[in-house]
């Protein structure tokens, strides 16, 4: 899995390429944490190149969302959620916890 981050004026973009499982999920957690540690809490997670995500990824996103939303200081939103991952998120009741956007531009524009 590859993660790239990009800082915009109103939010940070985290793009994930590849597969998120118990082995790689900590890397995503670290990327989100690094942004939070810089005092930034508005994050777009671009999943257009995501191939697979297990519940380890869901947990990482949940913990990230909790921290970002605390004190109303921000939130994590999802862009280009692949069909299979959307189905798994629906199944586990995670969909209501995240705003989703069709693409990166729309997601960044939300902030």
């Amino acid at each position: 899995m590859d993660i790239t981050t990009q800082q915009f004026k109103h939010c940070d973009l985290v793009s994930v390429k590849g597969r998120i499982d118990s082995y790689t999920a900590p890397k995503l957690g670290e990327a989100i944490e690094a942004i939070n540690n810089a005092g930034r809490y508005k994050i777009v997670l671009d999943l257009s190149e995501l191939e697979f995500m297990s519940s380890a990824g869901f947990r990482t996103m949940l913990l990230g969302q909790r921290n970002c939303k605390r004190y109303n200081r921000g939130e994590i939103v999802l862009a280009s959620l692949p069909k299979r991952t959307r189905e798994a998120l629906d199944l586990t009741g995670f969909t209501p916890l995240f705003k989703t956007f069709d693409d990166q531009v729309e997601a960044v524009g939300n902030f």
């Binding site: 869901f58 939303k69 199944l91 586990t92 009741g93």
Partner: peptide, 23 residues
């Protein structure tokens, strides 16, 4: 796991098993 609880209350564990049973 309770799949309807709020962000703060949401359980971290048990999701994998829930997925297995449902898939």
């Amino acid at each position: 796991p309770d799949l309807t609880s709020s962000l703060e209350q949401r359980q971290i564990g048990g999701l994998g098993l829930f997925l297995i049973k449902n898939l």
